[in-house]
Amino acid sequence: MTSIISAIIVLGVLIFVHELGHFLFAKLFDVGVEKFSLGFGTKIVGFRKGETEYLISAFPLGGYVKMIGENGEGELSEADQARSFAAKPPLQRIAIVAAGPVFNLLFAYLLFILIYMAGVPAATTKIGEVIKDKPAARAGLMANDVVTAIDGKPVQRWDELAKTIAEGKGQPVELQVRRGETTLTIRVTPESRSGKNLFGETVTSPVIGVVAAGEIITDRFGPLDAFVKGSAQTWNVIKLTMLSLVKLVERAIPLDTIGGPIMIAKMAGQQAAAGGVSFLAFMALLSVNLGILNLLPVPILDGGHLFFYFWELVFRRPVSMKTREIAQQIGLVLLIGLMVLAFYNDIARYFLGQG
């Protein structure tokens, strides 16, 4: 039940943020909005305020903002025609459509800033295990040693230690180590190790053969530092998401890694149990994914609409309705196929034990 509630909260918030972007920019450019719905299909609850009906609908995996004249339909009054989506210049339509995914990216950005201000757990440089017959063991490093500097550069967190060694391309490093009350300088020459990266590809990287002690502290940052770190983290997640999509197309990442609502529910429950920061980080990650995926130039997604409006902007004429209808049908087939694959993977993973 916790997983279901957590998933409803995550998806509800992200869908609301996405549709809010469309809604606010529609209002900004004086486009009439008939409906603002969280979910698709049958109306569960709703109310009307002004010209807009606000709804929660039965199928929760999405939402929509229905604007006057959005599909270029005729039979509008003169007043409605002036406030119709189709009557607006291409740049305004581009802004309205792009606002949804952009709001998701901005929301993730704000979440990352809040996360850094609230506090991020980080492992110290205390060594928990020195692997036998590896460079660290041969150089004399011991369990419970604390690495304080590498080649004279202070380090305080395990990720700094690992990153510095990885970027050293196997060159010898001098570790300044605190052992009890004593400070030592130990020279270690890393060795190469093959392993799998995030995408399942085999990579070779330099290692010295130590394992973190798992001593965790919480790093909290002021607003300015959180702004800088939140910016970097948002950009890193955007790059990772885009690279993952490329790897999927290249089949470097297998299609059975794609997850659907069951996977989201499971992960949401796990992150909620891990604490507020983990839950917010999971929401930020999903928000970036939602924003990037919606910007893909696939008909029926926001990116597909943007492609048509940019075409109109460049060539000074709209794409024909017949072409758009065919493209929408192709996009719908692709989207349904992706949803079927995600549901199949979820069922195989969680009910058939194949993942």
Rank of each mutant, 00 (worst) to 15 (best):
P190C: 13
L240A: 13
I264L: 12
S77Q: 11
G128S: 11
A226K: 00
E53V: 10
A226E: 01
W311Q: 12
I258L: 15
A98E: 02
R93F: 06
I127D: 13
L301A: 03
V249G: 08
A87G: 10
L285V: 10
A58V: 05
S77R: 06
L11G: 00
K196Y: 09
S278W: 04
G74N: 12
G353W: 04
V147C: 08
I96A: 04
A272I: 06
V333D: 07
E53P: 03
I253C: 01
P172I: 10
V130Y: 10
K88M: 04
F36V: 09
E312C: 11
L141S: 08
A58P: 02
R251S: 10
T241P: 02
Q92T: 03
R93Y: 05
P121N: 07
E19P: 08
I127T: 13
I94S: 01
G74F: 02
L91H: 12
L161D: 03
I9G: 03
Q176H: 10
T182Q: 15
K229S: 01
D225Q: 07
F107A: 00
L224W: 15
G337V: 04
G46P: 07
A95L: 14
R178H: 08
P60M: 06
V13S: 01
G100V: 04
Y64I: 05
G74I: 07
I262C: 09
I264H: 00
T2H: 07
